[in-house]
C-alpha cells in the first residue's frame, strides 16, 4: 500500500495504491474516484454496537467504507469534506493516537478505531467533545484537518500550549491539562483564548491552523437571516 498527497494545501486529495487483495477503510463519503478494479463496501467498524457508539458518542459516521482491490491492483482518490491539509502517519503497532472526532479520513485495514470517553474537564473545555477516537494498530493512518496541519514534537516533560479546538491528533504518551489562557478569569476570555490545553511530552501533537467553531461563528454573520 502506497500513498501520495496530491495538491497539498487547502484542497488536497490522497492517492492510495492498493495491491491486489489489499483494502483500506475510509470515512463514509471520502472516496472521490477509483480504479474499476476496486470494490466499495460499507462496513460497521467495531460491529454494530461499536458503530452505534461511534455514531452517537463521537458524531462520526455510522458506517465506514472499505475500498477493496478485489479484481487486481488499483488506486483510489480520497478527500475530506472540509478544506484543509491531509497528513499520512505510519502506525507501528505500539504508538497510539487520540484523534478528534472529525480528524479521521482513512486507514489501513489493520488499524483499530475505538471511541474513547475523555475526562469531564477535557470533554467540557478541551473543544474536542466528550468522545474522541483512539486509533491503534499497524499501518497507514490518514488524518485531515481544517486549515493546515502542524506537527509539534515534544521531548519527555517538554510542555507546549495549544488553544482548544485546534487539536487534530496526539500520541497517547502525551498528557494534557485544561487551564485558563491567562492567570485571570476576565483576561482569559477577553484575550479570546478562553481555555487552552497544556501538553506535556513525550510524543507528537498534530494541530490544525484554523478553528472550525470560530470559522463557523465568523461565517454566520454573512448568512442572511430568513424571515
Amino acid at each position: 500500500m502506497k500513498s501520495e498527497i496530491l495538491y497539498p494545501g487547502a484542497f488536497p486529495m490522497v492517492r492510495v495504491e492498493l495491491a491486489a487483495g489489499e483494502n483500506i477503510k475510509a470515512e463514509s463519503g471520502a472516496m472521490v474516484a477509483c480504479s474499476p478494479t476496486i470494490d466499495i463496501e460499507s462496513k460497521m467498524e467495531g460491529g454494530f454496537l461499536g458503530a452505534l457508539s461511534r455514531k452517537f458518542l463521537t458524531g462520526e459516521k455510522f458506517f465506514f467504507q472499505t475500498l477493496r482491490a478485489s479484481r487486481g491492483p488499483g488506486e483510489a482518490l480520497l478527500a475530506p469534506t472540509v478544506p484543509g491539509e491531509i497528513a499520512v502517519l505510519e502506525l507501528d503497532g505500539v504508538n497510539e493516537y487520540m484523534v478528534q472526532k472529525d480528524g479521521f479520513l482513512a486507514g489501513a485495514d489493520a488499524i483499530v478505531i475505538e471511541s474513547q470517553m475523555q475526562s469531564m474537564s477535557r470533554g467540557l473545555l478541551g473543544g474536542e467533545g466528550f468522545f474522541i477516537l483512539k486509533i491503534s494498530g499497524k499501518g497507514m493512518l490518514v488524518l485531515n484537518s481544517f486549515g493546515a496541519i502542524h506537527k509539534i514534537e515534544l521531548k519527555p516533560n517538554q510542555e507546549y500550549i495549544v488553544d482548544n479546538s485546534h487539536l487534530v491528533a496526539w500520541s497517547s504518551t502525551t498528557s494534557y491539562n485544561i487551564e485558563k489562557a491567562t492567570s485571570g478569569w476576565v483576561a482569559s476570555f477577553t484575550s479570546g483564548e478562553g481555555f487552552v490545553c497544556r501538553f506535556r511530552g513525550p510524543g507528537l501533537v498534530y494541530i490544525q491552523s484554523r478553528n472550525p467553531g470560530s470559522f463557523g461563528a465568523w461565517i454566520r454573520q454573512f448568512i442572511p437571516v430568513s424571515e
Binding site: T173, P202, G203
Partner: peptide, 9 residues
C-alpha cells in the same frame, strides 16, 4: 524516548 530517537518514540 531519548535524545537520539524521534519525538514519537
Amino acid at each position: 524516548f531519548g535524545e537520539e530517537f524521534p519525538a514519537s518514540g
